[in-house]
Design a protein around this nucleic acid. Structure first.
Lengths: 242, 242
DNA sequence: TCAAGTTGTCTACTAACATAGACAACTTGA
DNA sequence: TCAAGTTGTCTATGTTAGTAGACAACTTGA
């Protein structure tokens, strides 16, 4: 056969499911449209019809398709466009798409800075940091989980304050900071880990877009650094070019 | 157990391999460093040692780790930073990292514009386009495959010319275009498809960063549009912020 | 030298994956 | 109404993934 020799470690039905999902994501199968029949899909992927059924069942459980007995299987879903700008606000993007943005604090804690975090924030390794884990949703769909670190000494009680204001901008405003900007943004992709998969309601093995960013004060002082993981199947980034 | 109930369709050993790879990518395991012992990894992931061995074997085959009998398993690899700018040149980025950039034409053909491509290029659906598929490597490691479309009427023989000059900039220069800029860039993530997996020497099921971009003339006329797929495990994007 | 800890190899068993074929239940359009 | 095409369910069987335990081969440091 053609698929199974190429891959290892990923079940055939899963590969078929991913293939169909890619078709939905890139528009080959439009929302509302009928997918090819199970027999036809089985032929194109050169697998048994039962394998295709399993793939479709998995997609159906995630709400991407819906099977109708005697008729066919139909597509259900879209993707949100997310501009990467200096002052992009999550709520504005989601709101612009006619969806209701929501934020949710998962956890706030203190932990010492790793070498990497310390470098980002211009601190010494081991400096106490406030770590804030938050989840962002559009309507009821989870979009991303973000982990933000701030110097505990500079921003005392940041966790509790964030819990109240639920916004980074408002959090900084609380400490008298009204002007700040994005100093760096790094985008990469990875496979979702177990903890994020649960929070994002994402099947394990799915890709996430990982965005590492650092915000600095107008005078250049590093304020906070964030690592956000976006469900790749629900979002795409728009990069602004001069 | 903890992993297998959460996921379905992805083999346990594969999940362990991905977990370790993530650790390498984000620096938890630095290059040259010794990984925890197989028994310890088995305990942390709550799987059998044989499963861990299979995961490590897969990573070893991809050149990410190297096992030394009696001693331990050691990390081998890094990631290239790739700035997303208006006038970023692949060769400059790779060259700056001390690696030798290479380009390679995979295929050049003609095909009619889909609705989507026509929109990007400001043409009518069905207009004949030249399609150029190219692979880019750093030293001997494949970094990305890119598909570029140009209007066949505006750029006659573009495929053959590209084959000779092996550069988009030089190709446009051939038609007298010396000033052009990036009009839009969209970044998303997906799972590599079978064809790209072979070209990129990537295991199926691995994530790719998908970059859709359109370049326009100084006067705003759309020139070409590209869909490039980057091996996520070998690259990360840097977004420049004002 | 030697004990402790490492990777490498073997056998054995259970559960999940994949194929194969048959037929029921239902929808659609002629 | 009815035939063709669809999804849903069942049984059966071989292959791959995962667990379990034992021991060999090798490295390291005391």
């Amino acid at each position: 056969m053609s698929l199974q020799d190429a891959v290892s470690g990923v079940a055939l039905w899963r590969q078929v499911a991913d293939g169909i999902e890619r078709g939905i994501a890139d528009g080959r199968f439009a929302a509302g449209e009928r997918l090819p029949g199970e027999t036809e899909i089985a032929e194109t992927y050169r697998v048994n019809r039962h394998t295709v059924r399993r793939a479709l069942a998995a997609l159906a459980e995630r709400g991407l398709v819906r099977a109708e007995r005697g008729s066919g299987t139909y597509v259900e879903a879209p993707r949100i466009a997310y501009p990467l700008r200096s002052r992009t606000r999550f709520s504005e993007i989601v709101g612009a798409g006619g969806r209701e943005p929501r934020g949710q604090l998962i956890d706030a804690s203190e932990e010492p800075a790793t070498r990497e975090l310390a470098k980002q924030l211009g601190l010494k390794t081991g400096t106490p940091l406030v770590r804030i884990d938050a989840l962002r949703l559009a309507d009821r769909t989870p979009i991303c989980v973000g982990t933000t670190w701030l110097a505990a000494a500079r921003f005392p009680d940041a966790g509790r304050i964030y819990e109240r204001v639920r916004s980074t901008t408002k959090l900084l405003a609380h400490y008298g900071i009204r002007d700040y900007r994005r100093a760096s943004t790094r985008v990469s992709a990875a496979i979702v880990d177990a903890a994020d998969a649960i929070k994002l309601d994402l099947a394990l093995g799915r890709p996430v877009l990982v965005v590492d960013s650092t915000d600095v004060h107008a005078d250049g002082e590093p304020l906070l650094t964030t690592r956000a993981r976006f469900a790749a199947e629900r979002i795409e980034f728009l990069v602004e070019n001069g």
